[in-house]
Simulated assay, not measured.
Amino acid sequence: MEGLKFVLVFVLLALASSLTFASDPSPLQDFCVAINETDGVFVNGKFCKDPKLVSEKDFFFPGLNIPRNTSNPVGSTVTPANVAQIPGLNTLGISLVRIDYAPYGGLNPPHTHPRATEVLLVMEGTLYVGFVTSNPENRLITKVLNPGDVFVFPVGLIHFQFNVGEANAVAFAGLSSQNPGVIIIGNAVFGSEPPINPDVLTKAFQLDKSVVNFLQKQFWWDNN
């Protein structure tokens, strides 16, 4: 009997663990178009519009064919198409971005998506891309991509894209969440508000405190 209880507890813990590490929950209805009102059915962080009032506009977002301005400090611009732009994505567990890169040097800085794996498709240009595995290896996995090439960035891992070509580059990326989130490493560490105590960063990065103070005074550009 004790052995049976142990097996039962183990199975329940395994099921709980699998649910804990799941991505966006699967919908149990055709759609749940997000609205800003605070009354109605609350699903996955959003209230649902009455299905009878839903229209094609709730599932539509134009303009991802339009090149974006990349004349900024990092030389890239990310144009998202997630639940904030397309209310009909609510509960569907997927979103899209367009990324424009300036000629040689255009960078989508090291960042993570805490809630999504990313699949990147290069449309124009040549990109040097990569991600870093978790501790203890911290191994860098990189690849140079050309038009038509696809690369995957696993959920939560730090990754980047860098234009190594002489022309503009364009890529589209699908993400496995309606709201993948983004944490740009430099912005988060050195540009937080309020700032992280410099003593913490000095010890964490083994830098002189004057360097940390300098970095915290910089303007950290958000390309999203």
Rank of each mutant, 00 (worst) to 15 (best):
G156R: 01
T202V: 08
S95M: 03
Q218H: 11
S176C: 01
F219D: 06
A81N: 01
N223T: 09
V97T: 07
S55I: 13
N82C: 00
A167V: 15
L53Y: 14
G174E: 00
Y104P: 02
G156F: 02
G106M: 09
C32Y: 13
G181L: 05
P154W: 06
R139G: 00
V119T: 09
T20C: 15
F21M: 13
N146K: 12
N36S: 15
F21V: 15
V11W: 05
E124N: 10
K46P: 03
Q178E: 10
D222I: 14
V164Q: 02
P136K: 02
N44A: 13
A116F: 09
W220L: 05
Q161K: 11
A84Q: 09
E118F: 10
L89S: 00
P195R: 09
G75I: 07
K143R: 14
F42S: 11
S71M: 14
A22I: 09
N90I: 08
P110I: 07
T112A: 04
F10R: 10
V43E: 05
V164T: 13
V33G: 10
P67S: 08
P27Q: 06
P51E: 05
V164G: 05
C32T: 13
V155E: 06
F31P: 08
L12I: 15
Q161T: 14
P136M: 05
L12N: 07
S176A: 01
N187C: 04
P198C: 11
K209G: 00
I196G: 03
P110Q: 03
T20P: 05
F151C: 04
N82E: 00
T70V: 15
M1T: 11
V74S: 00
I86M: 01
N197P: 07
I86P: 02
D100Q: 04
V83S: 03
F205W: 11
R115G: 07
H113V: 00
P80K: 00
T77Q: 03
F214M: 12
V78E: 06
Y101W: 11
P27T: 12
L157W: 04
H113G: 00
I183S: 10
Q161L: 10
P194C: 02
A204P: 04
N72S: 11
P25L: 13
V212E: 01
F42A: 07
L64H: 02
K46T: 13
N223D: 06
L8S: 06
F47V: 15
P180Y: 09
F190H: 04
H159F: 11
L28A: 10
N197C: 12
A22W: 09
Q206P: 01
V212D: 02
N135G: 04
G125K: 02
F21S: 13
V74L: 09
L215P: 02
E118G: 08
N168K: 12
F42L: 14
R115Y: 14
K217C: 05
V9D: 05
A116S: 08
T133V: 07
Q216R: 06
L92D: 01
V33L: 12
P80M: 06
L127C: 01
F205L: 09
